[in-house]
């Protein structure tokens, strides 16, 4: 999963401090693996360097200074581009796809369009594998079938998510 894009997507809702960003990330996506502070600050430094975020203000505190980050126009374009580009089909994509769907809902983009683009990308690869399987020998068939069943599992998850988008939208916006 791209932490940079996810943090950018979260920033699209409004400026935020690194600490609050980490907390929101962990609450929404970090069930198994919460972010380390170091990851957040190194990611924000990289986004800053590339002009995707800017420091909107610095608040002095008792500890280190607290920077308030805001997304730039270049950052908005980057999030849109990330959401629009389907992932390369491979097993265990759920984390990335789930993240994209949630960010799309949070930023009032079409989550359906993301799922549709991904379905089409998965089916493109499944067609290729089916062709190889049809033309190949038993070994080819077994190898291709393994990949096909994994891709099919992704697609079933995708269809189920598409069917539950209204529920998810409510859950995400309330969270």
């Amino acid at each position: 999963m791209s932490i940079g894009h996810t943090l950018l997507g979260l920033l699209e809702a409004g400026p935020s401090h690194g600490y609050d960003l980490k907390r929101e990330f962990d609450a929404r996506f970090g069930q198994d693996r919460p972010l380390h502070y170091g990851q957040v600050y190194s990611t924000m430094a990289r986004l800053l360097k590339h002009g995707l975020v800017e420091v909107e203000g610095v608040e002095p505190g008792e500890g280190p200074e607290r920077k308030r980050y805001a997304i730039t126009d270049a950052g908005l374009t980057d999030v849109a581009q990330w959401l629009r580009t389907p992932e390369k089909p491979e097993p265990y994509l759920q984390n990335t796809l789930y993240t994209k769907v949630v960010i799309a809902l949070l930023t009032h983009r079409s989550a359906e369009a993301i799922l549709d683009a991904q379905r089409s990308e998965h089916l493109r690869l499944m067609r290729e594998l089916t062709r190889r399987k049809t033309e190949g020998d038993l070994v080819d068939q077994l190898i291709c079938d393994h990949a096909l069943f994994h891709l099919e599992a992704d697609l079933r998850w995708l269809e189920l998510t598409a069917a539950r988008l209204d529920q998810l939208r409510t859950a995400v916006v309330v969270a």
């Binding site: 998965h122 067609r127 069943f149 099919e152």
Partner: peptide
């Protein structure tokens, strides 16, 4: 509704 069937299209 099956992706593996649709993959023949």
């Amino acid at each position: 509704h099956e992706a593996r069937v649709a993959a023949y299209s």
